[in-house]
Design a protein around this nucleic acid. Structure first.
Length: 586
RNA sequence: GCGCCCGUAGCUCAGCUGGAUAGAGCAUCCGCCUUCUAAGCGGAUGGCCGGAGGUUCGAGUCCUCCCGGGCGCGCCA
């Protein structure tokens, strides 16, 4: 891409003038204002300051050594020492022509190819998938898709909650309170009902709690009846998950739930104990601070009443049972042994930050060589709040089911399609509504910075105007339609000319697609891509307003058709990275 | 108490790890469809970036303190 070529030439020039400069600090970015150029760099100002040099003079020295003449007009030194690059029309035009032939336009395969394991979605067995699962599922899927498009190897793993103390209550409920007719009608609702009923009974009556605990012990001991019921609950839940994932278009390479790691848990704790990483604490096994960092940065320390206290990570309960920390450590070990990843991404709620800090640190202590080879990232996101600013629930206090959100989204989209396109048959309208409705839900979740809490609003989530997926899908449809009507194919169109300001603005924005994808991958923030695509849609819309395509004379007509073609492809590829589909007509 | 996060237009939020004049959507107001899809485009209104200091060529972004809010803090996940 032009950007990376310019950046590496600038790096050479800077190092020629300032040999001890940090090469990674030499960065070229899209210009903040089109009037200033297409790309800009502020690197020389940062270099001049500590060296006591005049920034503008240093900039002039760098420019004298800089050879970007094949792509740019004369480089300008502006303001306190900015370097402004303006692409030549011929460079833009040949980049566009190259993109027509490329498998993915404006994207080149990422340089060091990484192997990235992504842990996301992770719903719980016997519970409905609810609105809270949207963020992890949609974010994780978007990151997987983006990393794959960039050429990285991705392993997606759905770490479902299929083990744990809740199964004691579920088993007891299954045996004593199950309504078979209700189970047949809506399995998850019935499982949820018996769980809540037993949970309430446990609070009221210690004997019930004891009975639930006994069921759990029998399950853990390998009791055939309980294992059979447990497997049935997983099967019922998995078919619910599959239905939702099918609607969302989300797939996983693996679904290795918590129970998969049971055979290793005892060994994990024993090995950690043998290596002196974990030790007995009040009857439990725990990982303590090694005292190698300041207390405030130590995940195993906490301050209380003015003094720092130990805050260990428990890897085995005093009753001998294991907990999620144990499972997470076994999982981490398994993933590294199995896939040798360069990175592992955990896409979860921000409230688990402390937990993951402890798990990562404990693993680092336990297996330093494995930890050194793999970067661990907690890709966390904020909470979904109700309009009152409190955690989002329905009026009756229940969580909002994901399936119902998708139903409502598709229904609302269908109403719009009926109004806009009464000429289409209902089956076609329904299909458009499906793509638009599901896309709207996903986009609304991907658009905000993932770390913000966000306020749930049906109207906002399902809005079809403004910076929303329907708008992006609509702009794709327009561009694709023009290309179809023009009878243009990539084989036919060679020459692209960018003459008008609108053509040039659209073209220069297209060039930065790969740059944005790299930023999304680097920071695990798909919202960068959302904003890029929204801007692209705006530029393309302004282009249509100003530049007739089909009514232009050749060779302008073919040139503009090629621009439409590239716009459509980038919109489609970008939306695909977000897990959002397009329709050829809307 | 300690830690993490947040506070930007009336509302909901961006702001690319310190760059040039702080941007969108919604809402309000004014224009644009006999011309390739108006789910659109153009324009207007709207800001002490919670407050006070500091760091430097340059701060919404970094540091300190204060105010206000959310979350977390041993055997749940």
């Amino acid at each position: 891409m032009l950007h990376s070529r310019i950046e590496s030439r600038l790096r050479e020039a800077v190092l020629a003038v300032v040999p001890d400069a940090d090469p990674s600090a030499v960065q070229v970015r899209p210009a903040s204002d089109a009037k200033l150029g297409d790309y800009q760099s502020s690197v020389v100002m940062g270099l001049a300051k500590p060296r006591g040099l005049n920034p503008r003079a240093l900039a002039a020295d760098v420019v004298a050594r800089l050879d970007v003449g094949e792509w740019c007009e004369a480089v300008e030194v502006a303001g306190p020492g900015f370097l402004n690059f303006r692409l030549s029309a011929s460079a833009i035009e040949s980049a566009l022509a190259g993109a027509v032939a490329a498998p993915v336009p404006f994207v080149e395969p990422a340089r060091p190819r990484r192997t990235v394991v992504i842990d996301f979605s992770s719903p719980n067995v016997a519970k409905p998938m609810h609105i809270g699962h949207v963020r992890s599922t949609v974010l994780g899927d978007a990151l997987a898709r983006t990393l794959r498009l960039l050429g990285h190897e991705v392993v997606t793993d759905n770490h479902i909650g299929d083990w744990g103390t809740q199964f004691g209550m579920l088993l007891l409920g299954w045996k004593t309170r199950l309504d078979p007719a209700a189970l047949a009608r809506d399995p998850i609702a019935e499982l949820e009902r018996i769980y809540k009923a037993v949970n309430a009974a446990c609070d009221a009556d210690p004997a019930v709690r004891g009975a639930a605990k006994a069921e759990l012990v029998r399950l853990q001991g390998g009791d055939a009846d309980n294992l059979g019921i447990w497997r049935e609950m997983i099967r019922l839940s998995q078919s619910q998950f599959d239905a939702i994932y099918g609607r969302l278009g989300v797939t996983f390479d693996h679904t290795l739930g918590e129970s998969f790691y049971n055979p290793w848990l005892a060994q994990v704790v024993a090995d950690m104990a043998a290596r002196g990483i974990a030790r007995d604490s009040e009857g439990a096994m725990a990982v303590f601070s090694r005292g190698d960092v300041a207390p405030k940065d130590d995940p195993f320390k906490i301050q209380r009443d003015g003094a720092w206290h130990d805050m260990p990570l428990l890897v085995q309960k005093s009753d001998g049972g294991f907990n999620y920390a144990t499972t997470d450590l076994a999982t981490l070990d398994y993933r590294i042994r199995t896939w040798s990843p360069t990175d592992i991404l955990y896409v979860t709620d921000g409230r688990q930050q402390g937990h993951f800090r402890q798990v990562f640190a404990a693993f680092q202590a336990w297996k330093p060589e494995a930890a050194a080879a793999t970067r661990l990232h907690h890709v966390w996101f904020g909470s979904i709040l109700g309009e009152d600013g409190k955690p989002f629930k329905t009026r009756s206090g229940d969580t909002v089911r994901l399936g119902e959100v998708l139903d409502e989204a598709e229904e609302r989209a269908w109403a719009v399609v009926r109004e806009k396109r009464p000429d289409l048959p209902e089956a076609v309208q329904r299909e458009i509504a499906r793509v638009v409705g599901v896309g709207a839900v996903k986009y609304q979740d991907l658009l905000p910075n993932r770390q913000s809490d966000y306020v749930f609003s049906w109207d906002k989530m399902l809005a079809l105007q403004g910076n929303t997926s329907p708008y992006l899908q609509y702009q794709y449809t327009r561009a694709a339609k023009v290309v179809r009507d023009g009878g243009w194919t990539p084989a036919a169109g060679a020459g692209i000319r960018v003459g008008t300001p609108e053509e040039r603005a659209l073209a220069r924005h297209l060039l930065n697609f790969g740059l944005v994808l790299a930023a999304v991958a680097e920071e695990a923030r798909p919202n960068y891509l959302c904003n890029y695509l929204y801007e692209l849609a705006g530029w393309s819309s302004r282009f249509y307003e100003a530049c007739p395509v089909l009514r232009s004379e050749e060779p302008l007509r073919s040139s503009r058709l090629a621009l439409c073609h590239l716009t459509a492809r980038v919109l489609k590829a970008g939306l695909e990275c977000l897990g959002i589909g397009v329709s050829e007509q809307m």
